[in-house]
Computed example of a mutant assay.
Amino acid sequence: MASGQALPDAPAGSSPAHHASALLTFPGRDLASAPAARRFVRDTARSRGISPRMADDLETIAGELVANALEHSDSGTIAVTCAHTAGTVTISVIDEGHGPVPVAALGTPPDPEQEHGRGLLITDALADRWGTRETGRGQVVWAEIITG
């Protein structure tokens, strides 16, 4: 990808001049992909000089978004990007699914006995902004943290 070119998964309105970006693809039907994505994002963030606290938040977001893709998309592969600009870090998870991300009841916490359903609530709490969009090949869920 040419320097200064926008990443295909970057959120609308984000700066096209990325200082650093990384992409890794994981098996879409393998539960080990979520912890592997967490490690990838943590290591990438730390190598870019992101603060340990922010790297922890990015790692958590990546794990939650990949877990959602594993549970809801039935994708053969899931790609994770970590893009770092002068003022933001954006995590994007690209899957082969289509349709809206299950955002039902974002304002309503799941039942305390429920084992699932907190991923987007956690993402919403940790990210400065996040969203979804369809691509020609699937769904992108992204989350952005302001670094400056």
Rank of each mutant, 00 (worst) to 15 (best):
A10Y: 06
V66R: 12
L58P: 09
A55M: 12
G13E: 04
A104K: 10
I78C: 11
H18G: 02
T60D: 11
T108E: 11
I50Y: 01
E59I: 00
A22C: 02
S92F: 00
A83G: 07
A17R: 06
D74R: 08
R29F: 10
N68L: 06
R48A: 09
I50V: 15
A83K: 00
P27W: 12
A104H: 12
R42T: 08
D30R: 14
S21E: 10
S14W: 04
G28M: 13
H18L: 03
E113I: 09
P35N: 08
P112K: 14
I91A: 03
A22T: 00
A62C: 10
A86P: 00
P27D: 14
I91Q: 01
P35S: 07
D111K: 06
A67C: 11
S51T: 07
P109Q: 07
T44A: 07
F26N: 06
V93T: 14
T25K: 09
D43G: 02
L65C: 10
Q114P: 04
L23V: 13
F26T: 08
A79I: 09
R53F: 10
R38W: 07
R48L: 06
L31D: 13
E113N: 14
A79T: 14
G87E: 04
E59W: 01
G13R: 08
S75A: 14
D9N: 15
A104M: 03
S21G: 06
V80E: 01
E64F: 01
D56M: 02
A17C: 01
A36N: 14
V89N: 10
V101G: 08
A67W: 09
R29N: 10
A34P: 09
R42Y: 04
V66N: 08
P110Q: 08
A12T: 13
H84V: 09
T81V: 06
H72C: 12
